[in-house]
Computed example of a mutant assay.
Amino acid sequence: MTYLQALVLALLQGITEWLPISSSAHLILFPALVGWPDQGLGFDVAVHVGSLAAVMIYFRTDITAMARDWGRSVVTRRLEGEARLAWAVLLATIPVGLAGLAFKDVVEGAMRDPHVLAWALIGFGVLLWAADARGRRVRTERQLTWKDVVVIGFAQALALIPGTSRSGITMTAGLAVGWTREASARFSFLLAIPVIVLAGGLDVVDIIEGEARQPLPLLATGFLASAVSAYLCIWAFLAFIRRIGMGPFVLYRIALGGLLLAVF
């Protein structure tokens, strides 16, 4: 990889990680379409850690309160303050964690096919449009029920299918159970924290077992570019999602999926 390639891919990942358009699809397809070499697992981990840093900085106040109240709830067995939200994030992560362990080889192998990407982009894009159009959008994540947590948690497991978009499918589920756009997005972003940590942990094991490493300065470039672009993307998305809705992202998904079917 060159530093230009690292910068472009890191910016691409930092932006698409938080938009409902599938970051994995873009990281798989863009290098292939322009003839760049595969960036390697080490670089993927670096840019995802950059995105993780961005979301933790953006939600630092919420995360601090959630961690404090969660720890208190373990002792007192009472859901006070942000403890309910913290438990919801942890419980909603279980399905994707189990599915990731069970189907890791399949997801990283046969399912990284352009046709799978294309139909996932289109199909789950249509679901996002339906949930946005028909959802009641009257509750926030702090009014969640445990049924909401189950629905969103199992929906998140579908994000293992390349092209689905983890943020997209969790926002779809949030809208479907009656949450507002902003609430669906915020909960989706908080859910990303344990998911990125778990996925990164599995990838680190693969790297230690023999995955080729990129030079440290190249990884640092990817980390920083991903962190900055991810932070700005989170800010912009939450600032404008109420007004723009999900329509532009649905159209983009369908167009990208159609392009993939035409090319491959």
Rank of each mutant, 00 (worst) to 15 (best):
M1S: 11
Y3V: 15
L7H: 12
W18N: 00
W18K: 00
S23Q: 07
I28N: 10
F30R: 00
F30S: 00
P31Q: 13
D44S: 15
V55W: 00
F59K: 00
S73E: 11
T76G: 08
E80K: 14
E80G: 15
R84H: 11
A86Y: 06
L91N: 01
L98G: 08
L101E: 01
L101M: 09
K104L: 04
D105T: 11
V107S: 10
V107R: 05
G109N: 06
R112T: 01
D113L: 00
P114S: 11
L117P: 10
I122S: 09
G123S: 10
L128S: 13
W129S: 12
A130T: 00
A133W: 11
R137K: 15
R139A: 15
T140A: 11
T140L: 08
R142D: 14
T145A: 11
G153W: 06
I161F: 12
G163R: 12
T164F: 06
S165T: 05
S165G: 09
R166C: 07
G168M: 07
T170M: 07
A173E: 02
L175S: 02
V195L: 10
I196L: 13
V197M: 15
L198N: 00
A199K: 01
L202R: 13
D203T: 03
G210S: 09
A212G: 04
P215D: 00
P217V: 07
P217Y: 09
A220Q: 08
A225S: 09
S226K: 01
S229W: 04
C233F: 11
C233R: 02
F237D: 02
L238C: 06
I244T: 09
P248K: 06
F249E: 08
V250I: 05
L251K: 02
I254T: 06
V263D: 01
